[in-house]
């Protein structure tokens, strides 16, 4: 794909060169993180089909640029919180793929000792405050984290992710009202992948430009291309600046697409066509990034191939770690219920 420069960045079609200022290391890291997410998800899908992973498994494939582009605009001390499609956010935050895969396998070495599973990834040491499985349930939590930042007068922000369908929940509207009323440093990111499970957005929401939903609360809305990591980065950077400097919330709608079904058990042929999915894949975030890195001579094809090999290796050793890890002891079910 050679048209990255048109798609990258702001919608006015500005050239991608401006992102060179991020520096080679950061650009490469962003690319490798997107690759790691994709390979991790592919391995998880395989393990799920082998019944090594149970429950619900919601894959992030196609949406990698959202977690990576947004977190690139944050500092380590900033908080993030998300919904149940949470693998990408945890990996981007630097959570150990071994422990995450072990969590998917339900093992005692997992991030939640096998009690959380796919929908409940937490890495509190890295300020990743969870994966939350009730649609919209995490939005007040993220708002409360921002409340604490303001209460303690800290130089931090909280990015609160949600899916498009969550914007129809009461918790979304109550949170936006509180964040605007109390001027909280929170950035709401709606990962609009166009479907709430099998329901297309225009069958679920009276307003399909989701960024407009902030206007009822006086919250600025932004919309950005979620298949382009730089576009996401730009929008989030601007919103984070506003949160940090003015303690004001922003609602960013990121238009993205998931290549797989809602979860592993979702036959997506019921509600969308293969043609539509193929069309979306032409905007693939990883392919766009590769084109950028090659054209700008930041990396060679050989290096890109190596990155992919390394991502695959990292993921397969995570699978080995998960497989060889112990089951939680029975008595551990009584742990960590009360302090």
């Amino acid at each position: 794909m050679s048209d990255y420069a048109v798609k990258a960045g702001k919608s006015n079609g500005s050239a991608g060169e401006e992102y060179l200022s991020l520096g080679r290391n950061k650009l490469i890291e962003m690319h490798r993180t997107m690759l790691l997410i994709r390979r991790f998800e592919e391995a998880a899908a395989k393990a799920y089909s082998q019944q090594k992973i149970g429950g619900f498994l919601h894959l992030y494939i196609g949406q990698e640029a959202v977690a990576v582009g947004s977190i690139a605009a944050l500092r380590e001390e900033d908080y993030i919180i998300t919904a149940y499609r949470d693998h990408g956010h945890a990996l981007t935050r630097g959570a150990d793929p071994n422990k995450l895969m072990a969590e998917l396998f339900g093992k005692y070495t997992g991030t939640s000792k096998g009690k959380g599973g796919s929908m409940h990834f937490f890495d509190v040491a890295r300020n990743m405050l969870g994966g939350h499985a009730i649609v919209g349930g995490q939005i007040p939590l993220g708002t409360g984290i921002a409340f604490k930042i303001k209460y303690r007068r800290e130089d931090r922000v909280c990015v609160t992710y949600m899916g498009d369908a969550a914007t129809n929940q009461g918790s979304f509207h109550e949170s936006l009202n509180l964040a605007a009323l109390w001027k909280l440093p929170v950035v709401y990111i709606v990962e609009n992948n166009m479907y709430g499970m099998g329901t297309a957005i225009d069958r679920a929401s009276a307003v399909t430009d989701l960024y407009k939903k902030g206007s009822a609360y006086g919250i600025e809305g932004m919309v950005t291309d979620g298949m382009n990591v730089f576009a996401v980065y730009d929008s989030v950077k601007e919103a984070v600046k506003k949160a940090r400097e003015l303690s004001l919330p922003t609602l960013i709608e990121v238009r993205t697409y998931r290549y797989r079904g809602h979860s592993m058990s979702d036959p997506d042929s019921v509600y969308r066509t293969k043609q539509e999915v193929d069309e979306e894949k032409r905007r693939d975030p990883i392919e766009q990034m590769k084109a950028f890195l090659l054209t700008e001579k930041i990396a060679t094809q050989k290096e890109l191939d190596n990155f992919d090999e390394e991502a695959k290796k990292e993921v397969s050793s995570a699978v080995e770690f998960a497989e060889s890890s112990p089951q939680p002891p029975l008595e551990s079910m009584y742990d960590d219920i009360y302090v």
Partner: peptide
Amino acid sequence: PISESGFTGLSVGAAMVGL
């Protein structure tokens, strides 16, 4: 505001990070 889900959830979030 009369927004129990909102301010209760907000408080859970604040408690998660130390308040």
